[in-house]
Design a protein around this nucleic acid. Structure first.
Lengths: 187, 187
DNA sequence: GCCCGATGTTCGTCAAGGCGAACGTCCCGA
DNA sequence: TCGGGACGTTCGCCTTGACGAACATCGGGC
C-alpha cells in the first residue's frame, strides 16, 4: 500500500549517488569498499532498486565527501544578471517597501554569506572551486566587473549576478570603495 | 566493524524527529498515522533505536512538512551585528581585495536571496515566520532600522545583522533609496 | 588467441527494519 | 470509583535490506 509518493526519493538518490560517484571518479567496487558496504547493495541502489537505510546512505555520503543532503535532491546552476531596478515580480507588501527574490535556495545547498571589498587594480583571479559551487553577488557600492572568464559583466549598486563557481572566474573593482555581498553556494 | 561513525546520524535524526514533531504539535500516534508508518516504528526512531529507511524518513518529512534534509542535522540562531569595517578575520588574499565570512551556512538550511528597497516611512512590521527562520541583512545604500521588536538596530552601508525571523520584527528605512540584501534562512 | 584483472550485475542466505496487536500509563468525565 | 480514550512503549511475526559469492562482460598484455 506504499505505491508511489509525491516524488520518488529513491530515483533521486539513485541518480545522486551515480552522479557523485562519477564526480569523484571512483568505481562502484571501490566506492563500496571505501564506504564499507557490499557492492551488490550499491549496485542496487544506483539502479533505483532498494530502499537504503540511513546508515548506508550516511556511509556513502562520508565516502563521497558530501554532506548527505546532497544525495537527496539535485542542483542546477546557470548565469544570470539582474540589474538594479529590473528586479522581477516586485512584491510590494506595503508602501515604502519592495523586495524581490533573486535566488531561491536549492534543496540541500549550503550558502555562506560574505561581504567583500575591492579596490581598483588588476582582476582577482579565482580558480574553479569544487563542482556544484555557485556564486551570488549583489553590489552595494562602487562598480565590479566579474563573472566566469570570458563572460565578465559590469555591475553597479543593486545589481545582482549569479554564475557557476566551478569554473575560473574573476573579480575586479572599477571604482574605489567597492563593497559587495557574496553568497557562496556549495550545494 | 561498523562501530561509531563520525557523528552518529541516528541520534541526530532521533532528536530532529522529536523536535519537529513537537514543533508541529502532533502526537506520536497522530504523526505515525499521517506519515503512514507504524507508531511502533516511530517510537523506536525517536528513542534512537533503529535505522530508518529512506522511504520511512521521507514519509516523515512529508508529514512534518520539512524538506528531509532538516531531519538530518540541526540549527541554532542568535542575534549578531557586524559593522562595516569591523568584519572579522579579514582574509586579504590579494591586494585590492578583502572579504569576510559573515555567516557560515548551517547544514540543511535553505537560504533564499532577496534584495529589498525601502523608503522612509512607518516601519514595516513583519510577523513571526515559521520557527527556525533566520534573517540576514547587509545594507547596500541608505540606512535601516531593523531587528526583533525591542531590539532594533540602526545600520548603514556595509553593516550586517542577523536575527531570528521566528519572532516579530520590523524594517524601517532611515534614508531615501535604501537598498539591502536580505538572505532568508529557512533551515 | 589466451589469460588475467577489473568492472558491474545477479543470486541465495541471514539479520534487521517495519508492522500490528497488546500492554501499561495518565487524564478526564460520568 | 469506575470507565473510556489518547498517549507512548513493548512484543512476535514477516517482509526486506544488506551481505558475500558466483556470475557475465570488457580491455589490455604476453
Amino acid at each position: 500500500m506504499e505505491s508511489e509518493r509525491a516524488t520518488a526519493p529513491l530515483d533521486v538518490i539513485a541518480a545522486s549517488i551515480r552522479r557523485e560517484r562519477d564526480r569523484v571518479g571512483l568505481s562502484l567496487t571501490e566506492l563500496a569498499r571505501q564506504a564499507g558496504i557490499a557492492k551488490s547493495t550499491l549496485s542496487q541502489l544506483e539502479s533505483g532498486t532498494g530502499n537504503p537505510s540511513v546508515e548506508t546512505l550516511w556511509a556513502l555520503g562520508v565516502a563521497l565527501g558530501v554532506p548527505f543532503s546532497r544525495l537527496v535532491d539535485p542542483p542546477r546552476p546557470a548565469v544570470r544578471v539582474v540589474r538594479s531596478g529590473e528586479w522581477p515580480a516586485v512584491r510590494s507588501e506595503q508602501a515604502h517597501f519592495t523586495g524581490a527574490l533573486l535566488a531561491s535556495c536549492p534543496p540541500g545547498a549550503r550558502r555562506d554569506i560574505y561581504v567583500i571589498t575591492l579596490e581598483p587594480g588588476s582582476p582577482r583571479k579565482a580558480e574553479a572551486h569544487i563542482p556544484g559551487t555557485v556564486e551570488h553577488l549583489v553590489v552595494s557600492t562602487g562598480r565590479v566587473r566579474t563573472g566566469p572568464v570570458g563572460e565578465q559583466v559590469d555591475l553597479g549598486p543593486g545589481d545582482y549576478i549569479r554564475f557557476p563557481g566551478d569554473v575560473p572566474h574573476s573579480y575586479q573593482a572599477l571604482a574605489a570603495d567597492t563593497i559587495a555581498v557574496l553568497v557562496m553556494e556549495h550545494v
